[in-house]
Simulated assay, not measured.
Amino acid sequence: MPRVLITGGAGLIGPLLATRLLSDPSYEVILTDIISPPIPPKAKHPENCKPIQADLCDPSSLKSLIDTSLPLDAVCIFHGIMSSGSEANFELGMKVNLHSTLSLLEALRLVHKPNQPLLRVLYASSQAVYGQPLPAVIDESVFPTPEGSYGAQKLCCETLLNDYTRKGFLDGYSLRFPTISVRGGKPTAAASSFLSGMIREPMNNQECVIPLKDRSFRSWLCSPKTLAENLFHALKLGADALPKHKRVVNMPGIGVSVQDMMDALERVAGKEKLQYLREETDEEMERILRSWGTEFDNSLAYGLGFRKDVSFEEAVRDYVDSLKE
């Protein structure tokens, strides 16, 4: 039975992948976070999920987690402090996003034995590694120059994961996620949080503040449903799918403007929901948002078998349907 360790197990992406894995009785999932992560409520085989509370910033807690989890077939590194949170608290962002990830990679290196298959490692990176000026369309050949601490920390981890893979310590892929929308739950400290809030909050009769007054502003988005399938696919990628020193993939997304999102909300839920949207400029949030790319060439990802959403409206309908379950 393949055993997969997922960090950030109490967040969004960890439970998404865990739910997908636990739809198959052949997978065993270990979910870990700074708090004890719940077993995903939609898991078809919850008996195959083991939650473990652990602090990856604490060496003894990290060692205990690894010792308890072995033997492992894959590790998904999904924990972190989001973009605006990392910018507001530099020390915390460095501690969680960079230092704990490097400690985890080193712990995995030390337990690897030469006669064992290489451990598959998926790292949740971000389009925030890119900064202006940017070409109209971005692909993996564009040199990343992050304009925020979050993107800088992600880029550092990408580089080290490439080198750990090149050295034969593990078999890693860094996946640069688009903004995930529509997220369930509560608003986060991410600058992009409103890109889910524009749908989620009105559907719960709550206000969402859009931090810029520009309805033509575009974002590169991916639905939770499509992301879960793409992550499942990434676990099965061949070890020779990319060169060992170039293991970064811009994950597929679709370009959507603020107006497009408002139109999709109106079509799916009715014009009355638009009253819950308020546009109010937040200069720091807008600076972060405008530093990100808005159009990507995902040819590399498509060639590896990843897929994109059909439309943002479909993502909205998926979210609305989830509220009925």
Rank of each mutant, 00 (worst) to 15 (best):
L175H: 02
R176G: 11
R176A: 06
F177K: 01
P178I: 09
P178W: 00
P178Y: 07
T179M: 08
I180T: 15
V182N: 08
V182P: 09
R183G: 08
G184C: 09
T188K: 06
A190R: 07
S192P: 04
L195F: 12
S196L: 14
S196N: 13
S196F: 05
S196K: 03
M198P: 05
I199K: 07
R200K: 06
E201F: 01
M203C: 13
N204I: 06
N204P: 08
C208W: 02
L212V: 04
K213N: 11
K213S: 11
D214W: 10
S216K: 14
S216L: 04
F217C: 07
S219C: 09
S219P: 06
W220M: 06
S223L: 06
K225T: 10
T226C: 13
A228D: 05
E229Q: 13
E229W: 04
E229N: 15
N230I: 00
H233K: 15
A234F: 11
K236A: 15
K236E: 13
K236I: 07
A239H: 13
A239I: 11
D240V: 05
A241P: 08
A241L: 06
L242N: 02
K246R: 12
K246M: 14
R247S: 00
V248Q: 09
V248I: 15
M251R: 00
P252F: 02
G253L: 02
G253W: 00
G253E: 10
I254C: 01
I254F: 15
V256R: 04
S257M: 09
S257K: 09
D260Q: 05
M261W: 00
M262R: 07
M262E: 14
D263L: 07
A264E: 09
A264K: 15
L265R: 08
